[in-house]
Design a protein around this nucleic acid. Sequence first.
DNA 1: GGGCCGTCTGACAACGATGTCACGTTCACG
DNA 2: CGTGAACGTGACATCGTTGTCAGACGGCCC
Lengths: 332, 332
Amino acid sequence: MRDVAALAGVSLKTVSRVVNGESGVSADVRDRVAAAVLRLDYRPNLAASNLRRTVARTGLLGALVQDLSNSYSAGLLRALEDGARPHRTAVLAASLDEGIERERELVHDLVSRRVDGLVIMPASERQDYLVTELRSGPPVVFVDRPPRGIVADSVMVDHALGARLAAAHLLEQGHRRVAGLFHLARISTVQDRLAGYRAAHEALGLTPDPGLVVTDLSTADEAAAAVLALLDLADPPTAIFAGRNILAAGAVAALAERGLRRTVALVGFDDFPLADLLDPPLTVIRQDVGRIGRTAAEMVFGRIGGDTQTPRQVVIEPTLVTRGSGEIPPPA
Amino acid sequence: MRDVAALAGVSLKTVSRVVNGESGVSADVRDRVAAAVLRLDYRPNLAASNLRRTVARTGLLGALVQDLSNSYSAGLLRALEDGARPHRTAVLAASLDEGIERERELVHDLVSRRVDGLVIMPASERQDYLVTELRSGPPVVFVDRPPRGIVADSVMVDHALGARLAAAHLLEQGHRRVAGLFHLARISTVQDRLAGYRAAHEALGLTPDPGLVVTDLSTADEAAAAVLALLDLADPPTAIFAGRNILAAGAVAALAERGLRRTVALVGFDDFPLADLLDPPLTVIRQDVGRIGRTAAEMVFGRIGGDTQTPRQVVIEPTLVTRGSGEIPPPA
DNA sequence: GGGCCGTCTGACAACGATGTCACGTTCACG
DNA sequence: CGTGAACGTGACATCGTTGTCAGACGGCCC
């Protein structure tokens, strides 16, 4: 900047004025400065600029998601990016991999970097630690999972409703042995999905067989192994509810191995690319990830803009997308 | 920081020393400062710190990919994140959507933010503009597509080889009418894939029918429409090579619509989740995206660390993954 | 007891930019 | 022709931190 000022024969402040398009600079001077900027490839240092500015915005949005390579997280991130762009804000993204300590470290790091806002899909069960972290820190919006131990904005689908829709759909067709595959039981949304699965049974005066419920499944392989074990039962399930996208993938693989893809009904939670091209096409509970991301972005930028309403919990209704795999009837 | 210093009864510099774990601070003072830091929830301002430091690192890696929600980009991003973490570096990610102007803007923005390094999957055909941008800017590594008009490191698969493997695989089984679906013809890697597709034909003394080659397909829907049109030809293709992951998805959908999934052979470029669960499972050319990302991260951090070797072009060999869809024989 | 050294600490400038304010011109007006 | 407002510009302090250097202090040696 000093060099630009020297080359243009003006003061630092005037260079600043031109670079920031402030008024009150004569056309002549503006041109001279612009020429010098081009000639020297001058790029303002955003960090220094933000340091000095009164309304200090780093133009950074922190996004902590479960796993960047997972289609759900990736879709969410993309929606956040689109929501951030109009605000001239870039997205700092990181994966938590369900790591609680990692969540803490990453939040700390992002706060130190003075992000303007934070969108987080928490791995931890409680986020009390955020209270101090955020006392004078950036606004936070929770997605996919609700905040615990702290009051904050959140956007998520009704997990219990989604699971209930899925299980009810299978039960309505006459299935009475509906297996349930779930992710880590310690996660609140997993508990919600489990509750929804049970509620669907109870609404019909039924009780799910505990032997058909498997929790703490993290990978497709684990889900496949669980399904194979279930199929080996004396009284195997005639339908399966997979409480997470990759668990549905594992279930499909297991059913394929036994040649039962057209025999055992399957409904998954979370849509994913190509689900409609499977054979039979996969019936799923869809969460509108784009809408979730856009809503989260709106909320966080609202807070950044000074919105001080009491925190809102936005709940988005999931929908059942019937494609075939969930409409296989039980054996006569 | 001033408050911490006051509370601990020491100078600013001493707080700095304690926070940065510098030696030469008595245990007593260190404890007092640490207590004050905790009490006041003090967080060092990374931007200010980097501004002053001699070896200024922002701890930011810029990653410009085609589309964050695409499984290929997402997988790459994840690998970059993993490669960046040991260097205490966070990833600033953005989507280009094949937008040339957008690429320019985003690069400019990232340079202004003083990222330590840049990994870019370029949308533009030539990157001359980067020469000035990077004269005293961060090191850049290109992924997936080669740099043009600028000398820089790059990591990518051999696109021509991949396409050749795919087309040769189909031709070897006796197919003589192998359609080719391709993305934007202006993109160099698309040209490479086209060349590979042609080379496979020429190796057998054949010439691909221009009527079976469709370029400038961007979406699954466009690919599906193209395939339907091809199937309506008087002499339709007996096999299809889809030069990009979502084009394969479109092709599958079109074949499904005509009930030809087990009749027309199909090989895709780029693997994706669930490709093995399709019926028939999809035969693809796989690029090891994790390896590409890790290699790119290694290269960019090498440069950041002061490596000044002449730029390297790392080429990773794609592999043919046979699963079924590509092994359908031509009609007798 | 004087000199020297090592240890610990603080004062000050600097990183690259912007907010504040005051100064010098120009020009319309009475 | 004097006055004052409007305009254009620059000097200086400042943002939150770290590099440099100097000084205070205690202990050791001769």
